[in-house]
Computed example of a mutant assay.
Amino acid sequence: MAEKKTATVTTKAAATKVAKAAPVKKACTAKKTCATKTVKTVDMAVENIGFRAGDVYQTLASEAQPMTVAQIAKAANISETEVLMGAGWLMKEGKVAAEADKLVLA
């Protein structure tokens, strides 16, 4: 009995598809330091959202002008996520309205 030898033939196109399919991403090099981003968790309790709504309302009342979410967060010393939760609470109650990209007392 004679053995059959099989040869594997790959085309140039097939080889480039394999090479393009899995690009290599370098995470960090020796010269660069990797920065890790810390994410602040937000307490989603109803009481906390109510307190943030109070912070947003007091900030808007003291400034007496339309403010962006970032401006309110900076003035009230809370995160932008907390500002959005508080603003949603106040919008539901009809105390705050949105004008373009700013919040204003209704």
Rank of each mutant, 00 (worst) to 15 (best):
K5I: 15
K5V: 15
T6Q: 13
T8N: 12
T8W: 11
T10L: 11
T10E: 10
T10I: 06
T11P: 00
K12P: 01
A15Y: 04
T16C: 02
K17L: 15
K17E: 13
K17I: 07
V18W: 04
V18F: 07
K20I: 03
K20N: 14
A22C: 05
P23D: 06
P23C: 05
V24A: 11
K25F: 05
K25L: 14
K26E: 08
K26R: 09
A27M: 09
C28Y: 03
C28L: 13
T29E: 06
T29D: 08
A30Y: 07
K32F: 02
K32V: 08
C34P: 01
C34R: 04
A35W: 01
K37P: 00
K37D: 12
V39P: 00
V39S: 08
V39Y: 13
T41A: 14
D43M: 09
D43A: 11
M44I: 13
M44R: 12
V46P: 00
E47T: 11
E47V: 09
I49W: 01
I49M: 15
I49C: 11
G50I: 00
R52M: 15
R52L: 03
R52T: 10
A53F: 02
V56D: 08
Y57P: 09
Q58A: 15
Q58F: 06
T59S: 13
T59P: 04
T59D: 09
T59A: 12
T59H: 04
L60W: 03
L60Q: 04
A61S: 11
S62P: 00
A64T: 01
A64R: 07
Q65M: 10
P66H: 07
M67G: 03
T68R: 05
T68W: 04
V69C: 13
V69H: 02
I72F: 01
I72G: 05
I72E: 05
I72L: 05
A73I: 03
K74V: 03
I78F: 03
E80G: 15
E80C: 08
E82Y: 03
E82F: 02
E82S: 13
V83C: 04
L84H: 02
L84R: 14
M85D: 06
G88P: 00
W89S: 12
M91K: 15
K92T: 08
K92I: 10
K92G: 03
E93K: 13
E93W: 01
G94Q: 05
G94T: 06
G94E: 09
K95A: 13
A97R: 07
A100C: 00
D101P: 01
K102I: 03
K102L: 06
V104Y: 00
A106L: 08
A106N: 14
